[in-house]
Each structure stands twice: as C-alpha cells, then as structure tokens.
C-alpha cells in the first residue's frame, strides 16, 4: 500500500485525527447553514501557538484534500514568516500542492487580508480569527453577548460607532469592521482592513472563519449579503490611497507603507504581493519600479 495515509507514518493526513476532523466538519456545515453565526467547536491544541492561526489551520486541515492547491498569506503576502511557516506545515503533514498565485489556489488561508483578485466559485477562503465576537470589546462576557445575538440586540454596536462619530467626526474603526450577514447576525470579519469589507459581499467563493483559542467557526456562503454597519448620515466608506502602488502602478488596491530612510522617505506598495508581481510581469511599472525586462523587450 502506498496511499498518502501510509506515507505519513507519524501524523494522520493533515495532522488532525479523524474524530477531530469530523467534529470540525460538522461545525463547518452548521456554520454554512447559519451564515454569520459563530458555531462553538472543541478547538484542539495545535503545534503552533494560539493566536497564530490555529483556528484557520484547523479549518484548513478539516477541508483540505490531496487534490487541493493551497495558498497562505499573512498581511496579503505569501512570504511573511507566519505564512511561510503555515504553508510548510501543510506541505509536511498533507503533502499538498502549494502556490502563491491566487488564481491557482483552491484553498486560501489568510490573515488580515482578502486578495485583490476577485475570488471565484470553487475557491475557499479560510480566515484566521483572533477574537470572533464583534461585541466582545463592548461586552466582555460570553454569557451576555450570546444573548444579544439570540435577541438580535445590536444597539450597543451602533451606539459605539455613533460615539466615534461624535468624538472624532469619523467611525474610528479601521479594521475588523463589523458587518451584518444576510440581515441577521452581526459578524467580525477578522482584522482585515475595512478596505476589504466590500469583497465579502456576494463573493463567489465560500468564506470560512476559524478562531482556535476562542473555539468558534463561522461562515459566509457564496452569494451572501454582507453589509458593513453604518449610518445614513455617515455611510460606510473604504480607505483611499493618494497614490498608486510605487512598484506596479495599481490603483484601487490596499497599500503598505514602506519607510525608505530616516529622512521621511517612504513609498506605498501593494500589500497583495501576488497581485503586484503579476502586474509587474505583465509590464506595469510604478514610479519607483523597474520595467520588467521580458515585458519591455
């Protein structure tokens, strides 16, 4: 016998034992059936620290199979250390094909970003979630927030956002900006910048959220309404960057600020490294970029 199961002598396929996978899979199915509702699950200790993506890793491990191609990003980039570490983990325990290309991936595990490229049917986006409860910073008690969700009592959240406006003239939440899913549950989209919020709405991909330490799984099925909370006189709006990406010249994408020297020199470049590379390969050049030789020739 030379199935992948026997090749991985020390670990089960995808690390988790089958009983754990079943438990997570049941939670995922209920999460999909109740969009935006946080399903409690018996999160396991993983060989990486809580807060470093154990929820996302458990969801990915329960979902992934030998036919999948996995992409892992952190802050939009494939080469950040934690993304590298999680990708290597799945290569080791699931022997799975990996890619940095958004388009080629069937499962994308992410921390803090949604890729710029529109996701498609057949793709699964798995979010790593630190605090799944959108009401947690308003009410620390689980026993209370659970009641609020049950009664659809979200007044506190609106009060908080409105206090922001009163104090600062703006809604001061810039990431992990709360959304309402399918008109029912208020949901924490994980600490993605609010710039990414509109991408969740009516996405063609299935979106799964895993919070390991807090032991919750939730989901947004494809083609589901995801609305960022706002007010008539203060409508939701996303960040706008003054300049395009300095390397690839892209407009309307999320940018990282890079400090170039100690004299105030800085540049703004795409946070989504795959998106940026692909544009540069296609010959797009930003003001500090260098023309791609092949494309230029």
């Amino acid at each position: 016998m030379s199935t992948p199961e026997t090749d991985l002598a020390t670990y089960n396929f995808a690390y988790l034992d089958e009983q754990t996978k079943r438990m997570i899979r049941r939670a995922i199915l209920k999460a999909i059936a109740i969009p935006g509702y946080q399903v409690p699950f018996a999160s396991r200790e993983m060989p990486m620290p809580y807060g470093w993506g154990t929820g996302g890793v458990q969801v990915t491990a329960a979902v992934i199979g030998p036919d999948d191609t996995l992409k892992v990003i952190d802050q939009g980039a494939d080469d950040t250390t934690n993304a590298v570490s999680i990708r290597a983990f799945f290569q080791k325990v699931a022997n799975v094909a990996v890619t940095t290309k958004t388009r080629e991936a069937t499962v994308i595990q992410t921390r803090h970003r949604i890729p710029e490229e529109k996701l498609t049917e057949g793709q699964v986006l798995v979010y790593q979630v630190p605090i799944p409860e959108p009401l947690r910073f308003l009410e620390p008690r689980e026993t209370e927030t659970r009641k609020m969700h049950a009664l659809e009592e979200y007044g506190l959240m609106h009060v908080k956002l409105y206090e922001d406006i009163a104090r600062n003239g703006h809604i001061a939440t810039t990431y992990a900006y709360p959304v309402k899913v399918e008109g029912r549950y208020v949901m924490d989209p994980s600490p993605i910048p609010k710039f990414d919020n509109p991408k969740m709405h009516m996405s063609e991909a299935l979106q799964l959220f895993g919070a390991g330490r807090e032991k919750r799984i939730y989901a947004i099925p494809p083609h589901t309404k995801v609305v960022s909370l706002d007010f008539e006189d203060h409508p939701f709006e996303v960040q706008k960057f003054a300049k395009p990406c300095a390397l690839c010249g892209a407009h309307g994408v999320y940018l990282d600020e890079v400090i170039l020297d100690d004299k105030g020199g800085r540049m703004f470049v795409c946070s989504d490294t795959d998106f940026c590379e692909e544009r540069r390969e296609a010959g797009h050049v930003g003001e500090l970029g260098v023309a791609n030789k092949e494309a230029a020739e």
């Binding site: 809580y50 952190d74 934690n82 600062n168 703006h170 990431y175 910048p193 940018l255 600020e257």
Partner: peptide, 29 residues
C-alpha cells in the same frame, strides 16, 4: 497559559495592514 502566551505573543506577528489602516485615519483626523 498556553492560550494566554499565544495571544499575548501573537502581537509580534506582522500587523502592518491594520496599522496602516489606523495610520491613515489618524493622519486624516
């Protein structure tokens, strides 16, 4: 303590996407 240390120490992971979002707002304000 395994949960606590993980979450406290996760603050050393990159957060520059979120920080950029905050930076943008603070600059605007």
């Amino acid at each position: 303590n395994v949960q606590a240390t993980g979450f406290v120490e996760h603050l050393k992971l990159p957060h520059y996407v979120d920080f950029q979002a905050e930076l943008d707002l603070v600059r605007r304000m």
